[in-house]
Amino acid sequence: MAIIVVDVMLKPEILDPQGNAVASALPRLGFTFANSVRQGKRFEIEIDGEPTPAQLAEVEKAAEVLLSNPVIETYVVRVEK
């Protein structure tokens, strides 16, 4: 069994009001380390066995058509050991 992870993030130029809200909440709680915060989505996809290059290519395709909206988001596909 393996887990394929797809991380989806808003493109840098797209306003992220949720990330901004988190960034402004942190100092209120005494956490002063953050210059800025961007919030994204993480998908964990469980498959049988080790992923083949063909399976990874399929996941890439799914990430492009469904898991992310390429107009506003980018994605990264990786395999979690």
Partner: peptide, 15 residues
């Protein structure tokens, strides 16, 4: 989302 129109609708700026 169907790409019949360009752009995207995202969370209201004040949430």
């Amino acid at each position: 989302e169907s790409h019949l129109l360009p752009g995207a609708l995202t969370r209201n700026s004040d949430l």
